[in-house]
Amino acid sequence: MAVVNRTKLDELLDPAFMNKLDQLALVSRKIFAGKMRGERLTKRRGESVEFADYRSYVVGDDLRFLDWNIYARLDQLFVKLFLQEEDLHVSVLLDISKSMDWGEPGKWLYARRIAAAIAYIGLINFDRVSLYGYANGLRGQIAGVRGRHLMFKLIEFLTDLTCEGVSNLPEAGKQFAIRHPQPGIVLVLSDFFEKASYEEGMRYLLGRNYDLYAVQILSPEEIDPRIVGDLRLTDVEDDDVAEVTVSRALLNRYKQNLQAYCERLREYCTRRGISYLFTSTEVPFDQIVLSYFRRRGLLK
């Protein structure tokens, strides 16, 4: 069993790359209150070595936190406040609709690799990691996993996922928000080709004040289609049909529309404090994790 898991792991993350990931840790732009004490400082005052502030002593305060040096100099009682260290919730919402199983190199493997890398980084830093697949609603999850030893479980979850169904981010976002009230980092990996509005789905997520990351993954065939002639295009998700006569003018118009679509998504995300990242599967996946995510502040 361990051998099998090892192979599945290698498929998504090879050991050399994992070594590089060992140096990294997830960073949230927001400091959240966790369920358990963890390795992360929170805004909550608590028991840690990180000094936060002083306040006047009131009766009942723990005398262990009185700053005796101040009392000696000023003859007043002040209590030292320390930052609370708590664990971080890292959730990955992975689009498993049928449109993700597309392209060469494929979007599906690309997205799972990113999910595996983020999950691995989260686990090795004792963060609470959750993985959700979504299509028309959430489908399959592994929630609240903590500790490096559970990496294989995550990998198995990822490899067992299959692409099926129609992408419906509003439904998935709604379900996620209900199930996942704790704040934390939420990474949405999708092509964002939503016939239902992706904005509604993002609104559900924004409502929980998550630290949101939207990663749009497209294949080269979607960015620069190489098709021509009189075609009957069928949507792999919902079998919707479009009859087109592909000409240069149409291809140009498609590219313009794609650019405008991505730009609108980026603008939407930027305005709402969501980190947006666009990538093609032609860009090496390790470059995304090691370079782009660090630049965006997700990893340090």
């Binding site: 080709f193 294949s219 289609p225 075609l231 949507d235």
Partner: peptide, 13 residues
């Protein structure tokens, strides 16, 4: 008579 070709999404087309 058009040839049939699947695409990930007909949204943009």
């Amino acid at each position: 008579k058009r040839s049939i070709r699947p695409v990930p999404s007909t949204l943009l087309w």
